[in-house]
Design a protein around this nucleic acid. Structure first.
Lengths: 393, 393
DNA sequence: TTGAAAGCGCTAACAC
DNA sequence: GTGTTAGCGCTTTCAA
């Protein structure tokens, strides 16, 4: 589609029409269709692009469809003369094969395996399953087969096992949440050497062998949290970066968030806040926290680097403390309740559902329609308060 | 795809396998494929769904493909006996026609026209053009033709003209930004009686004749702004709802936002804020504002209901006022600059690009692949500060 | 009421 | 090196 803008006043309608027709008669791939006048002095002209097929090209070049196909796919066995003639036409009309016809001809059922931590053990992953379900539903009548596998979020062994089993299945692609760096790199290498396409989501992995990553910039999300904290906590109060974690595997995530958080405050002209880091012992979180609070009565803002904000708030509540501000991650039910009750000021949304949904649709549409897969897709960092929460659910 | 969970300990691997095979031998549409053991006590079994074609069904039912097709599309001329036999099989296997084959057979170029206000006159609409461009790019090799039309954002006449011209083009669908209620309802009726599908975005229109609306809940976005204002403006200060508008057409939008904003504060237990509404005369905004500020020195928070926050901030700057907090809408370049400089505290993102992109892809995938179009898609209300701004651009 | 056959655009195997 | 042809799954026309 092209739009051309002319000054309506300069020529009469009829003259313009003639002029345009003459201009575009030469363009073989433009079919003059209609003329539309509207909006102030602008003239809109609609041209339709003719959709060419290999048959058209074959006729134009005086060769057979087979030859055209050989040229398009560079399969050789074409004379120099035919090659030149056909390529010239292809370029001239900017030929793009009909992906629907290609797909039909292809007629292959693509197998995609999704690997993520068991949502029963860490409910951060529940929305990821929803994202997979949505993609399955949306493409159920297409020739794709999506299989879902879980591993224990703190068991490298189960992660290895799952990937070995999937390797045996020999799918066309794997969408992977690479929680464990070392094991993931190994798994990806195995997949790649078996010719299996690998996409990742949520956790980034420093490896060029994956075709795509869908996730969030964790460093930047730390900065976002810091900015929010800065706007809600008055000067001369301490701020606590609080690492709650079930397993040690997301240590890197927490570090990136902490770095972003601290960098934001360090970048301020005169820093009025003292920032301390607190790692909460998962075995005995209450004790750790109470001890901390007793020795630090200036702490007013808490930044929880994982989805465990509710855990912090519950403990704080039991020790009926002053008006402490909490900023955390992830729209878990428990967090959402506390957000509505103003016990949590903001939650940062990592869009887990969108991550798997997008990761999958990229793969599917690539296989079915040759669509390009973006190498890195960083999702917006969602700031959620009690009022826009509902629009994210 | 199905996953079945068993307790691994209960049976030996071999027994389980036999058991499952027996269970599913009856299921004609499940092909037993593989068995996978992993993760704690869970057993995962992968079954592949056979993808049936009308040929398969025809053979099963002992009729021809033509008859099956007649049954599927309820085109009659089928004997009772054949009808029953075929429908039974169709239900049993939950047959879904291959949308790719349907699309190829169909082989029609779908024409879609997009109608929006001229971005040169109001740059809120620039991202909408980007969304259209993205959809065009993504589907350029498919049989769709997308045309873009502009009207003057304050000229009902140009709006009428554009729609009349499009009606002559007789496209398959129109994606419309219905700025003017009355004129839009009329245009939609004309389109519908010409059998043209109409989707809307950005502004809602109380009409059942549109198949889809993509936009945002403006009332709720007012509440979101109020909540943010509440967290950043201390008690006992006045808050100003500030209506800046170029044309009167978005009066309804501004009202909805104001209602949400006021409702939030009215819902608070002891309201500590006095809220006033200020309509800024577009002809002489400086004078209006300066007069207002002189007679109201307790005003600390400003909620701008349109994308014109930059306008307010510019005026405030010239009169070097105290630390006034501004919350506004839309990621225009000017607003973004002020957000980064902390002259604006928050911007609410209405995702204009996503609105047109989604509105278009819904239509396209409906035409090409029979996908369902959601009747209403309300996008998340994005809260943007200086740190997550970049992730939205 | 039914079946046979053509054809959408593209690919690939197979003759020549 | 080249053209012909069959076929992917579905729809539709036409003849029986």
């Amino acid at each position: 589609m092209y739009l051309f803008f002319f000054n309506k006043k300069r020529k009469s309608e009829k003259n313009v029409l003639e002029h345009i027709k003459k201009c575009f008669r030469a363009h073989r791939n433009c079919v003059f269709e209609h003329i539309v006048f509207c909006h102030q002095t602008l003239l809109y002209i609609c041209l339709n692009m003719k959709k060419y097929t290999i048959k058209d090209i074959a006729e134009q070049a005086g060769v057979s469809k087979g030859t055209v196909d050989r040229v398009i796919h560079k399969r050789g066995k074409v004379s120099q003369k035919a090659l030149e003639k056909v390529t010239r036409i292809l370029e001239e009309i900017d030929y793009k094969p009909n992906p629907i016809a290609q797909s039909l001809k292809n007629n292959k059922v693509y197998q995609i395996c999704v690997v993520l931590p068991d949502p029963k053990e860490d409910n951060f992953w529940i929305p990821c399953v929803d994202g997979v379900d949505q993609a399955i539903e949306e493409f159920k009548s297409f020739l794709v087969d999506i299989k879902l596998f879980f591993y224990g979020p703190s068991s490298t062994k189960s992660f290895k096992e799952v990937n070995e089993q999937i390797l045996k299945l020999a799918p066309d692609a794997v969408l992977l949440s690479p929680l464990f760096q070392k094991e993931s790199i190994n798994a990806v290498k195995n997949y790649r050497s078996a010719g299996i396409v690998v996409s990742t989501f949520n956790s980034q992995i420093d490896l060029e062998q994956t075709v795509s990553f869908v996730g969030q910039d964790l460093y930047q999300s730390g900065r976002v949290a810091a900015k929010l904290m800065h706007t809600i906590v008055p000067d001369h109060h301490d701020i606590v970066i609080c690492h709650f974690s079930e397993s040690l595997n997301n240590a890197i995530h927490m570090q990136q968030k902490e770095k972003g958080f601290r960098d934001y405050f360090n970048g301020l002209k005169g820093t009025e806040h003292n920032i301390v880091t607190l790692s909460v012992d998962q075995m005995n979180p209450d004790r750790t926290l109470i001890n901390f609070l007793e020795s630090n009565n200036k702490a007013l803002g808490f930044f929880v680097t994982t989805s465990k904000s509710y855990n912090l708030v519950e403990i704080l509540q039991d020790h009926s403390h002053k008006d402490i501000k909490v900023i955390g991650y992830d729209l878990l039910d428990k967090n959402n309740d506390l957000l509505k009750k103003n016990k949590i000021s903001f939650l940062i949304h990592q869009s887990p559902k969108t991550q798997t949904y997008l990761g999958l649709t990229y793969l599917i549409e690539h296989f079915l329609f040759n669509k390009e897969i973006p190498h890195t897709k960083l999702l917006p960092i969602g700031i959620v308060n009690s009022e826009n929460l509902i629009t994210y659910l």
